[in-house]
Design a binder for these strands. Structure first.
Length: 282
DNA sequence: ATGGAGACCTGGTGGC
DNA sequence: TGCCACCAGGTCTCCA
């Protein structure tokens, strides 16, 4: 479900309501998600104070006192349910709510993940980036260090389609299918372009488009965050106006009146749908 | 080393 | 209403 902006939004929501608080209850309703839950997870969480949060690519790191971090990935269908406990109401565990945490201040966190492609692990806070899931990740796209030069070097020599390359988390970390489609459209680059042929000028456009698309989506998620903590307040994908994603057959928004434009096309690359305008994107 | 296909899971949608 | 095929925001593992 979530790409970088959604994960950032979820992380901020968790930070706003869990940071500085002590976990008084922790329950696992399954022994595993994608992999088995780490041994002793519930016991480690119970009584722990939540010190801080961090996002790396699509991973959330919740730092606990005592030096451990809980690593969380939402997979394809992961959502977070943050609610305020009401003593007058019975607490029910939702379908697919695999992990539940409660704080001393009556905030209830539920991790919902029907497909269970998500993951949870424990890692020493001082060694977060050495975790096997984080160790190989490329640069953060919103980081100042992610420049056109960095991107072009990452793409250099790659014969794979540009779309596929941008989904490779080792080249740039956090992009998913939706925002890659959107960034390619904005930068007028074709998803079928051989990655290694991208010029410096094109890499510059692409970096700019990636940062813009992600920043706007985070801003939109941020605005949807206000007052989300209420019964059944779910954190996941927010409403967002995508220009090409999921719009096969619709008119290209930037080709009005162009006689050769047949609208947004959908193709499959590496098993994933790509949406683009063949007239505009080269 | 690189790139592609299959695998892991459940749920929603649309066609017949 | 029921059944079935197909689709979905990710990424790991295996194979050529």
């Amino acid at each position: 479900m979530p790409e970088l902006p959604e994960v950032e939004t979820v992380m901020r929501g968790m930070r706003a309501h869990l940071e500085g608080h002590t976990i008084i209850r922790a329950e696992m309703h399954r022994p595993d998600l994608r992999w088995p839950m780490p041994a002793g997870l519930a016991a480690r969480l119970r009584g722990a104070r939540v010190e801080s949060f961090r996002r790396r690519a699509k991973y959330i790191l919740m730092r606990l006192d005592g030096g451990d971090s809980m690593l969380l990935h939402l997979g394809m269908s992961g959502r977070v349910n943050l609610t305020r406990l009401d003593p007058a109401l019975p607490v029910t565990v939702g379908r697919h709510e695999h992990v539940v945490i409660e704080t001393d201040e009556g905030c209830r966190f539920g991790l919902v993940d029907p497909r269970r492609f998500g993951a949870i692990d424990l890692v020493r806070t001082t060694a977060e980036d050495a975790h096997r899931l984080l160790a190989g990740l490329g640069p953060e796209p919103l980081d100042r260090t992610f420049t056109s030069k960095v991107l072009q070097q990452a793409l250099a020599g790659r014969r794979t389609p540009l779309k596929t390359a941008l989904l490779d988390q080792r080249l740039v970390a956090g992009l998913g299918n939706i925002y890659v489609c959107e960034a390619l459209y904005r930068s007028r680059l074709s998803p079928v372009r051989e990655a290694g042929t991208v010029t410096p000028a094109e890499a510059g456009r692409l970096v700019k488009a990636i940062k813009a698309v992600l920043s706007e989506a985070i801003a939109a998620g941020g605005s949807s965050l206000r007052d989300y903590v209420q019964p059944d307040g779910e954190l996941g994908y927010f409403q967002h106006a995508w220009r090409v994603y999921g719009r096969e057959g619709e008119p290209c928004p930037d080709c009005p009146g162009e006689p050769d434009c047949n609208g947004i096309q959908r193709i499959v690359q590496a098993g994933r749908s790509s949406f683009f305008c063949p007239i505009l994107q080269n």
